[in-house]
Design a protein around this nucleic acid. Sequence first.
DNA 1: ATTAGCACTCATTCGAGTTGAGTGCTAATA
DNA 2: TATTAGCACTCAACTCGAATGAGTGCTAAT
Lengths: 344, 344
Amino acid sequence: MEMDERKTRILEAIIRNYLETGEPVGSRTISRYEDLKLSPATIRNEMSDLEEMGYILQPHTSAGRIPSDKGYRFYVDRMMADREKEVSDMQEMVVRKADQLSELLKQVAKLLAANTNYAAAISSPQIHRNKLKFLQLSKVDEGSLLAVIVVEGNIIKNKIIPTSSEMDNETVLKLNLLLNTNLCGLSLEEINLGLITLIKERAGIHSDIVASAIDAIAEAITAEEDLEIYTSGANNIFKYPELADNEKASGIISTLEEKNQLKEIISESLALDNDNGHAIQVYIGHESQIESMKDCSVVTATYELEDGMRGMMSIIGPKRMDYEKAAKTLKKLQEQLDALYKKT
Amino acid sequence: MEMDERKTRILEAIIRNYLETGEPVGSRTISRYEDLKLSPATIRNEMSDLEEMGYILQPHTSAGRIPSDKGYRFYVDRMMADREKEVSDMQEMVVRKADQLSELLKQVAKLLAANTNYAAAISSPQIHRNKLKFLQLSKVDEGSLLAVIVVEGNIIKNKIIPTSSEMDNETVLKLNLLLNTNLCGLSLEEINLGLITLIKERAGIHSDIVASAIDAIAEAITAEEDLEIYTSGANNIFKYPELADNEKASGIISTLEEKNQLKEIISESLALDNDNGHAIQVYIGHESQIESMKDCSVVTATYELEDGMRGMMSIIGPKRMDYEKAAKTLKKLQEQLDALYKKT
DNA sequence: ATTAGCACTCATTCGAGTTGAGTGCTAATA
DNA sequence: TATTAGCACTCAACTCGAATGAGTGCTAAT
């Protein structure tokens, strides 16, 4: 069967209506739409077709129809393609620049949630191109050295390195010089085994410290593990009856709280984003691959702070969420974050 | 009216029973307890008294009785005073030492929640006595210095300080020496205005950098703002029907997610803890002063990592939670955390 | 002081009946 | 041939009353 103009309009009417009410919508309701002058019976025939094609479904006989995931997908794709939505009529959201990045992110999450009435999550930015910029070992007390590592983008990492033997200041100075001259400006790929062994040789009896320091550097540059995720507005899901029953709510809440699963979808979405600019992604139901999210939709967008520091923010709501508003809100904050750091 | 031995036993029986079942308990149920050989009628008379005294209440006529907050308080106080509970028969919980403190805390929160089936929260440790241990300025690039500050307990803070004029290495070295010799080993109180002006004088044209550095130190030592809270097992509250209805659940979830209110109770509890060793605190219903927690109880305990680093962990469950288990679980983890850092 | 007995209360459960929104099919219509 | 009116049918949701049973308070007997 083919999708024609009229079917499209009917499907869109069904979805629109369902987005508003959350109730299955019947043929009579649609026939009342002024612009398509059709009797309920005709609508019913079309609906029957649409159901067969998989765009809508009936919760049970003698109920109206609700959109299927495929139906939502159709709707969202059309809406997104429609035009580059202008983000003018939005309520003003002001992001204050905070001195702690984590504070800024928490603030953004809160704004997202408060403006949409859905749940929101935001990830800390991931560094993209990262080279070691600066390294410093300092003696903190008798048994330990402090390694401070600065990578491109002024990301700072600290690591305490225990020392077996007592060290004098001069040795520390020498090690600093050795490490800095050999490693500064290099990326992870460029610090290879040959280079490491060379440095260790030169360090003599202190090769173990060099090893620890290099470990710390590797950790700082990859920075895999410190993908932090901040959430807000989890309680908003209770506003949508179709998500508010205990089992579903429990699943969603725990997904938001134990962030591991979120990390996956975020990593994936970040990767995807490389291809197509800063587009907004929509995951409907099962598309997010997270079991507990099968009744939710997730709208995601990347943001970019300074060059190469890219993170993800997302809005999590029921499938019948206002996709347009979600997308607009994300875009708005994307712009704000952009402006915040680019201007300086 | 007076509380006598028999009333006490009946009250305890009522509460015990209610803790198990979550259902109002009637006179017949209690009369079946072997150890107090009384007919339902007698029990009823006593219950009537207990109700008048405010220890129990009836959800409605012709229902059994449930404990009031006062009743719970009575029970908890007796239980706590009973004896120093041994923590032997607990399931083993192993806390791995993690190199990131935040990882450790998340782990502990998870353990608390998983072992009790309640929600759990843990705060990052607050530094108690804190002196500056070590300070280091380093040139990161042309326009900025990196200040690394280590305070007692090896807490490390970083701060980028922008410099107006270009600086050579020697000046940085001098400033380092100046700051370290004058400030190391001092606490917040000891760094007074006199000292600061003295240092600024000696720094000459670089007094602005000294000012920034001292600001950073103050921030690091007080460290008020970075009281982080990690939660786990929020979804557990859905296991208790009396908390699982939308409104209540929503309130609790949002309290756990937006951590502000938790911070208050934690600060308070930390302060209280100064007086009476490492006792376990119980807040029943309204006692926690948090509106959304009025149907919950919160059991809290402090933990101590290294000297002076004290934080709070708490278990949040329904009023009819297994207080004994909660207390034991907290104690167990208290010991584990102790052992983890004291031993080294 | 305790208990047995009894009348009373009231939330909960169950099933039957009703309602109403919605469907699919068929035959009439444009 | 596409659309529509008409009609029988389905089924979730609601209402209502009866039955159930756990629990109470009171009174009189032990």
